[in-house]
Simulated assay, not measured.
Amino acid sequence: FVVLANSKELLENEIKPWIEQFLSVRGVALSQEKTRIAHIHQGFDFLGWNFRKYVPKSPHRKAKLFIKPAKKNVSTFYRKVRDIIKNSGTLTQGALMGRLNPVLRGWAQYHSPVVAKATFNKLDLIFWRILRWAKRRHPRKSVGWLKRRYYCSGIHRAFVYPVKGIDGTVKFRQLYMLADTVIVRHKRLPGAYQP
């Protein structure tokens, strides 16, 4: 959990001892390694997000709080996607998409209420991992051939897989693009709404 206060002294001298006493009655203690007191301008990581208030360069503007995906969370996610692609050398294109889409969509949906658009755009490096996967499958083919085979020319960097329907029509299943995730902010609650 996160506790916010007006000063560091208030946190250290009043609130932290009260929380420790409250938890000790219930047989629980604060972890000394994980508990930390930080200024909001330095920021802190919580539940995969980084909370930080940025001071503007102009003196006429107010400081703004930005909640972004934490760097540790982003690198863990990228490693997970990289390992899925790396260990999928024998899978078909459809099976690889079946493994990747739930992971990509779930992570993107979790981070969709925060300031994550720049992170989503940066993580579309997954495109190059997919291209390397295709190159491993067809080592003697050119990059142009691979793009024609695995990517749709109408959509920028769209890894698509044709699926035939029962009626014979061909539909395309597409790899989930993080950059296409719509950012939807949470509605702010009034101050008196919460205790």
Score class of each variant (00 low, 15 high):
V2C: 11
V3R: 11
V3D: 01
V3I: 15
A5V: 10
A5T: 06
N6A: 13
S7D: 03
E9H: 11
E9L: 09
L10E: 15
L11Q: 03
L11F: 07
I15E: 02
P17Y: 06
P17A: 06
W18M: 03
I19N: 07
L23I: 03
S24H: 09
V25Y: 13
R26K: 15
G27K: 13
A29V: 14
S31G: 08
Q32M: 07
E33R: 15
E33H: 14
R36D: 07
R36F: 08
I40Y: 11
H41M: 10
G43W: 14
F44T: 13
F44R: 05
F44K: 05
F46P: 03
L47F: 13
L47W: 13
R52S: 08
K53H: 05
V55H: 07
P56E: 05
K57D: 08
S58Q: 14
S58R: 13
P59H: 07
P59L: 06
H60V: 06
H60W: 14
R61G: 01
K62Q: 13
K62Y: 07
A63G: 08
K64S: 02
L65Q: 05
L65V: 09
A70V: 06
A70F: 12
K71N: 12
K71I: 02
K72W: 05
V74R: 11
V74C: 10
T76S: 14
F77V: 06
R82W: 10
D83Y: 12
I84N: 10
I85L: 01
K86G: 00
N87L: 08
G89N: 14
T90L: 14
L91I: 04
G94P: 01
G94Y: 10
A95I: 04
M97N: 04
R99W: 12
P102C: 06
L104V: 04
R105A: 12
R105Q: 14
G106V: 10
G106Y: 08
W107L: 00
A108P: 09
Q109P: 00
Q109T: 09
Q109G: 06
Y110T: 02
P113Y: 08
P113L: 03
V114T: 12
A116N: 09
A118K: 14
L123D: 02
L125V: 05
F127T: 09
W128Q: 10
R129Q: 14
R129L: 15
I130Q: 06
L131G: 04
R132K: 13
A134I: 12
R136H: 04
H138A: 10
H138F: 11
H138M: 13
P139I: 12
K141P: 00
S142P: 00
L146S: 06
Y150V: 01
Y151P: 03
C152S: 10
S153K: 15
S153I: 07
S153R: 15
G154M: 08
G154D: 12
R157Y: 07
F159S: 02
F159D: 03
Y161K: 09
Y161I: 00
V163T: 01
K164E: 03
I166L: 12
I166H: 02
D167R: 00
G168L: 01
G168K: 01
R173F: 04
L175N: 06
L175Q: 10
L175M: 15
M177W: 01
L178H: 00
I183A: 03
V184D: 01
K187G: 02
L189V: 04
Y193G: 00
Q194Y: 11
P195Q: 10
P195H: 05
